[in-house]
Nucleic acid binder design. Sequence first.
DNA 1: AAATCATTCAACCAGTTGGTTGACAGTGTG
DNA 2: CACACTGTCAACCAACTGGTTGAATGATTT
Lengths: 132, 132
Amino acid sequence: MVELQTHELNAVFHALGDATRRRMIDDLAGRELTVSQLAEPFAISLAAASKHIKVLESAGLIRREVRGRTHFCRLEPGPLAGAQQWLSHYERFWTGRLDVLEGLLREEDRQASASVETPDAKSPTPKEGDDR
Amino acid sequence: MVELQTHELNAVFHALGDATRRRMIDDLAGRELTVSQLAEPFAISLAAASKHIKVLESAGLIRREVRGRTHFCRLEPGPLAGAQQWLSHYERFWTGRLDVLEGLLREEDRQASASVETPDAKSPTPKEGDDR
DNA sequence: AAATCATTCAACCAGTTGGTTGACAGTGTG
DNA sequence: CACACTGTCAACCAACTGGTTGAATGATTT
C-alpha cells in the first residue's frame, strides 16, 4: 500500500478539509464527471469550482482527461488510501479488540506498533535543557 | 461509530492538514504530554505551538487537563475514527482483495450492512452512476 | 467565418493561517 | 514576599484561501 509522504499528506488532508471538495469527491465516486457537472450542485462561480478541482487534482485525488473542449474528471483513490493508512496507525486507540487481525491486515505497521509505549527517536525527549 | 458532521469533518481534516499537528498527534499516541513537551521538537515559539494545540483541541482531537500550572494533553481518538469512517466509504475503490478481512475487521458495520461492496443506506453517494 | 460552449486565467478582495514578539496571569518554590 | 516557570493573550505580519468578475483560449456548431 502507498505510504504517503509529508507533503502529499498535507495536500490530501488539506483538500479534504473543505466540504465543497469532499462533496465533489463524493459525486465522483464510481463515475466520470465534467467540470461543469462537478460545479453544478454549488452556488459558486465556475471559476471557483475550477479552483477546487485544481486543488483536488494537485493533491492527486482526481485525474483529468481532456476530450475536445470538455474536461472529464475521475476519482484517483490512491491518496485516499494513503490518508486512511495514516489514520490506521491510530486505529488501536478506538478499536481495542481487533489487534490480531489488525496486525495481519496492515503489515507495514509492525515497526510503528512496536513503539506504542516505548519512546523512540522521533518522540519529544523531555530533556528540558535549561539548567546548563 | 461516530458519524461526523460537515463542520467537524472540516475541522478534523483541516487539523490533519499540517505536518506539525500530525507530528503532535503522533507524539501523543499512547501517552500524555504537556504543552512544552509537545512544542519541544519544533523550531517554533511556544505561542505558535500553543495555537497548533488549540486547533487540535477545537477539532476534538486532543483533550487538555490542567494540573497546577501545567497543561497535560492526551489524544482523543473519536474524531480520527470519524475521519477514517468517512474515508472508508471509498475503500471499495482501492481494496479489491481485502474484502473479506476488511469485513471482519470493521465488525460494527454488520449492524448496518454486511458488505463492503454494496452501497447501502448510510453511504454518502447521493447519485449512483453505475457506468464506470 | 461567426457564434457559442467549456474552461481557465488574471486581477482583485476579505478573511484565515502560521508565524513572530512582548506583556500578562496563575502556579510553584526559595 | 520575590522570583521563576508554564502557558495564554494581543498585536502584528506575510502568505494563502475561497470567492468574485471580466477577459482569454480552444473546440464545436451553424
